[in-house]
Design a protein around this nucleic acid. Structure first.
Lengths: 155, 155
DNA sequence: TTTCTTGCAAAGGTTTTGCAGACCC
DNA sequence: GGGTCTGCAAAACCTTTGCAAGAAA
């Protein structure tokens, strides 16, 4: 999905919800799509402020659900306190996250079989699956050779 | 794994780390193994206090990592603000969580096929998988028939 | 004018931590 | 004594929310 397509989807979503396309929302959108890495709300705030310094933290947090709601952004929760976001890839595809145990770097990998996992598991319980996520903790290459990741953040 | 086995593992872990087996730690252990449901830190505190009312919240939070570290407790993060815990089942087995979208009830189910996924990841990314979890959001039976779960907690 | 937006600051909820006293070896 | 452990309260952390001012329709 191109940035322009995403912007259209975002604006259409806002319109449909009776919401307005403001400069702040656009700045946040542009900041989010300025690069392809995972980012946190705080990082998004910093980048959005570089575009429009009137953007506040509150507005970032209020805009994030609008972007995930319009399916242009995907939320990734690796259970580390803060949530990560990234531009949603082309529709439909199931994605799994692989997180390095040391540096918390997030790799993403296509996992088309995940859908089958979810149905199998849900069927056993008589539940109807809505969504699913597969997360793998792993040791990245740097960690295995050096015993520690170069871009490690933790203590 | 029986409660007694778990207690032995826990005490062995403490000894090995040069830590002490205190009344508070044992009360927290007993509270955790008193039942098989998922529980939160706060619920654990309440139950531990019923056993030994000198147990503080701080000690509960300090003891939880000791119990997960000794592999007698498993941490389950469904991305809902608070973490859940439950006694670890018999080793090795891969487990998936199915969470009801409405009441947040957590079902657990054995998912042996997940193991296969680990090798896939290794091959594609050159990473060494450590653990993996599959979480499925689903609608439980009560929700589908009533449009709302009886034990729902959210607003 | 009516509705939607915003920034600020305060509040929210869970988890962590500094500290002084208590405890065990 | 030297190390560990504890409760308390405060702090840290990310996120949400109340509010009054502001902007758009």
């Amino acid at each position: 999905m191109s940035v322009d397509t995403a912007r259209e989807k975002f604006q259409a979503y806002l319109a449909q919800q009776g919401l307005r396309v403001t400069n702040q929302r656009l700045a946040i959108f542009d900041a989010a799509f300025a690069q392809k890495e995972h980012f946190t709300a705080e990082q998004l705030l910093t980048r959005a402020r570089a575009i429009d310094d009137s953007v506040s933290r509150a507005t970032v947090y209020r805009t994030l659900p609008l972007m995930t709601g319009s399916n242009i952004l995907r939320e990734v929760d690796i259970g580390s306190g803060e949530k990560f976001y990234m531009p949603a890839g082309t529709g439909g595809t199931q994605v799994a996250q692989v997180v390095c145990v040391d540096c918390d770097k997030i790799f993403e990998i296509s996992a088309p079989f995940m859908e089958w996992y979810g149905s199998t598991v849900s069927l056993k319980l008589g539940l109807k699956p809505v969504s699913q996520r597969l997360q793998v903790s792993a040791q990245c290459i740097a960690f295995r050779s050096a015993g520690r990741c170069p871009n490690r953040l933790k203590k």
